[in-house]
Simulated assay, not measured.
Amino acid sequence: MRTTVLIRLALPALLCVSAGAQAQDASALRTRSLAATCANCHGTDGRAVEGSGVPGLAGLPAGYIVEQMKGFKAGTRQATVMHQLAKGYSDAQIEQLAAYFAGQKK
């Protein structure tokens, strides 16, 4: 009887924690999927191939990445294709990408 009461009391709390973890996992997965769109040029997780003319993004400061992406998006920073690609990202997505790449080891 006592175990049943404890389970009834603890279950809602565990479900809330589980739901929060799942939401966090889903958000992290969305961000990682978004970052994967950069891999063709900038390498997996932002680690460009050595000797590549394209810079790696891994470990760069988030503020720097945001500034550069917004420059591409506004057309104030010239590039071959980034000015076109950057227009496809919302400011929130740019912030997410910047945080993701800043958190990666070079």
Rank of each mutant, 00 (worst) to 15 (best):
Q93D: 11
G51F: 09
R8S: 11
L15D: 01
A98M: 05
G46S: 04
R8V: 11
I94V: 13
Q93L: 05
A19Y: 12
L60G: 02
R30K: 15
Q68M: 14
G51S: 09
Q93A: 02
S27F: 13
L34F: 01
L11P: 05
L6S: 04
G51T: 05
L60S: 04
V17I: 14
S52H: 05
G53K: 05
R2N: 08
P55H: 06
A26W: 10
T44K: 13
F72Y: 15
M82N: 00
L11K: 02
Y64L: 14
G43V: 07
H83E: 08
S18H: 07
H83D: 08
K106S: 01
L15I: 12
R8P: 00
K70W: 08
A58Y: 05
A92M: 02
F101N: 04
A35P: 07
T31K: 06
M82Q: 02
P12W: 09
L6T: 07
L14S: 10
A36C: 06
A79G: 13
C41T: 11
C16A: 15
Q84F: 13
V49T: 15
K87A: 09
A86K: 03
E95K: 11
T37I: 11
R2A: 09
N40E: 12
L9K: 09
P12N: 08
A102W: 01
K105L: 03
A19S: 10
S33F: 00
H42K: 00
A86H: 00
A48C: 09
Y64G: 00
M82C: 03
I94R: 00
A99W: 00
G59S: 11
A98Y: 07
L15Q: 08
E67K: 15
G43H: 01
G59T: 05
E50V: 14
C16M: 14
A21S: 11
K106Y: 05
Q24G: 09
Q96P: 04
F101P: 02
S52R: 02
D45E: 13
D45T: 00
L97P: 03
M82V: 05
I94E: 02
V17G: 04
K87M: 07
L97K: 02
A92D: 14
T80F: 10
A99L: 06
A23N: 14
Q78A: 15
Y64F: 15
S52Q: 05
D25T: 12
E67V: 08
A13D: 06
